[in-house]
Design a protein around this nucleic acid. Structure first.
Lengths: 348, 348
DNA sequence: CCTTGGCACTCTCCAGCTGGAAGTGCCATC
DNA sequence: GATGGCACTTCCAGCTGGAGAGTGCCAAGG
């Protein structure tokens, strides 16, 4: 309904006031309350008129005829767009964040601390993930024989992520074989993405079987046992602060589903991928989260991807209730995302 | 109060019935209910007499004068002692557990899957930890130069646990220096505990400074940057199934504290250490958990340590409400503990 | 035309009351 | 020692009425 004056300064001011009041109190906002806190002493009646318009425009809801108004998803969307880019990260947050992340070079540790600090500053759930496997470039590998048919594979990627994996082989290989294989891979494939390396190994094993018998046999064996980039996704997803979800209201059933979902690292990774796998640098605020995860109705995702050479290599986000301090959280996420980007590019 | 007949067969039967009924319903148990389900058709009045005795003995509580009876911690203790060792792990559980853990050789992966499967079979929180650092024996280390003043250290212990750690040095070392240092450590200290290795390095650096200048300098540098056994404890604590704690009853405040505690991996590790650092093999059932962690009143720990050569190297446990299926959980924990022991000793 | 005060109306929330259900303790009896 | 009976206690669900908050609409004023 395109009503005239809907986005006028008066409406914006009132809508903003309603959203902010609702965020801080959690109670439906009435015209009287609003009139009292509003500097330009408008009377409750006037405000009621505006509020009626906003209801028509889809910005407000009424739980029942005689309760105050509650912001809709559309209102939050509008609110967030209004305030975005308005503030700097507070000195207190800056100190906290810098202090927590200082000295971390290891990406996994950075992710863990990031998820922690995100949950602290936002009072929501902090999530940090690194994209693994497919698009990561290989730096080098080690193989180390740990016993009969048992091999430890350590894969280091160019972004500094270390994957280690203990494997059991179908056939035994001695340390010399392993070193030869590792050298071969390191010399031939450094800088390739893991996925390409895997494909190329398969190709070469096929085509050169007769020539390099022993080496190729080792490679095949190692490949088959999953030495390269097995599914480590769960290890690179860090979720902290779920206890922040326990607030009053919200029924138990719902809360349990939510916690269960957050325990499934793969689903969290998917969620972030769905919204943050973009070439843009900006912080994204996703408000209708129930489209992706039904149990997350009334939740919001505030996140940002981190890039290396324009490719998404990781992402971090806060998942919290719609009633959250957007300003504060957005600036914090943005700040940490910059640090993350810097760390990745430094290591690259 | 040493009343005669308190532990007679009649009392035991009734107490057991009360505990089991309470576990399954969660409601205070009344004499009438009990009389109806009890095969030896005792009348409610008789049962009331026995119940009065059990209250005197400290086994039962009454929320208020006219509610049924509720088991005390002492009753659970008695109940658990009665049933312990009575059952085998069910075929269904055995299949589930074996299926989940099959093929894991890597200890971290084993721990993660263990905590997961524990939470599944018990409907509680599954916890699995490996003791790291101090008492772990060194198998070997790698150092790998990742850039200026940046080194990746990989420490493999005799139990198969891999610690990797990216570090920033104060002074740059080239790869040759690093290899020399790694070789030195591997040749001299294989089989020593990490703590001893660290102490010995400090000692040798002090006493032999003049002789091996370059090598010792590298070692000192690596030692100072924390290349060996930095505090990785959080990475070796796996907690899953917290969503199972969200059941009705229990106020939010309490629930939040509980979740928060379980998110602090160090505290979880301490809790397990406090109760499971024993040379015994048996499964332990700890009922008064609020002594160690106040917010865990009404919770129970069912856990077992895993040993290598009589030393505790890890532990696993279920943390759940007092109202849980003890029989089931105890047998499952015991079964998995055996697998864990086997894995550790195989790797040793 | 926008703003404002007034007023009747709606809906929720809470306190207080009530009847019924569940359970107990005790006593007399078998 | 076990049982049936009975009076007593306590909790709980459901109902009720009044207070409070907020609305919609209308008529009057700038």
């Amino acid at each position: 309904m395109p009503m005239p004056g809907q986005i006028g300064p008066r409406e914006r001011e009132i809508l903003t006031a309603i959203v902010e009041t609702y965020i801080s109190t959690g109670e439906p906002v009435g015209s009287r309350t609003l009139s009292r806190q509003n500097k330009d002493g408008l009377s409750p009646a006037t405000i009621r008129n505006v509020m009626a318009d906003l209801v028509d425009g889809g910005f407000l809801d009424q739980p029942h005829t005689s309760a105050g108004r509650v912001p809709t998803a559309q209102a939050y969307r509008y609110y967030v767009d209004q305030i975005s880019g308005k503030a700097e990260v507070s000195p207190a947050d800056q100190t906290l964040i810098a202090g927590t992340l200082k000295g971390t070079v290891d990406v996994q540790e950075f992710l863990q601390r990031t998820s922690h600090v995100l949950s602290l500053v936002s009072s929501g759930v902090g999530v940090a993930i690194a994209n693994t496997g497919q698009r990561n470039a290989l730096d080098h590998v080690y193989f180390s024989r740990q016993g009969e048919k048992k091999v430890l594979a350590v894969v280091v990627t160019s972004s500094g992520v270390v994957h280690d994996r203990m494997m059991r082989l179908d056939e035994d290989l001695n340390q010399t074989d392993l070193d030869t294989a590792a050298n071969y891979i390191n010399e031939n494939f450094r800088g390739w993405t893991i996925a390409t390396v895997k494909a190329e190994i398969v190709r070469r094993v096929e085509s050169e079987r007769s020539e390099y018998g022993r080496l190729m046999k080792s490679l095949e064996e190692l490949y088959r046992s999953g030495a390269l980039g097995a599914d480590d996704s769960a290890r690179n997803v860090f979720v902290e602060g779920v206890s922040n979800l326990v607030v009053k209201e919200e029924d138990r059933e719902h809360l349990r589903d939510l916690l269960r979902t957050l325990e499934e690292k793969e689903r969290v990774a998917e969620l972030l991928a769905a919204y943050l796998d973009t070439p843009q640098e900006a912080v994204r605020v996703v408000i209708g989260l129930e489209k992706a995860v039904p149990e997350m109705r009334n939740f919001v995702l505030i996140g940002a991807p981190a890039h290396v050479d324009g490719e998404v290599r990781g992402s971090l986000a806060v998942i919290g209730p719609t009633r959250m301090d957007y300003q504060h959280t957005i600036t914090a996420v943005s700040y940490i995302a910059q640090l993350f980007d810097k760390l990745l590019n430094e290591n690259a």
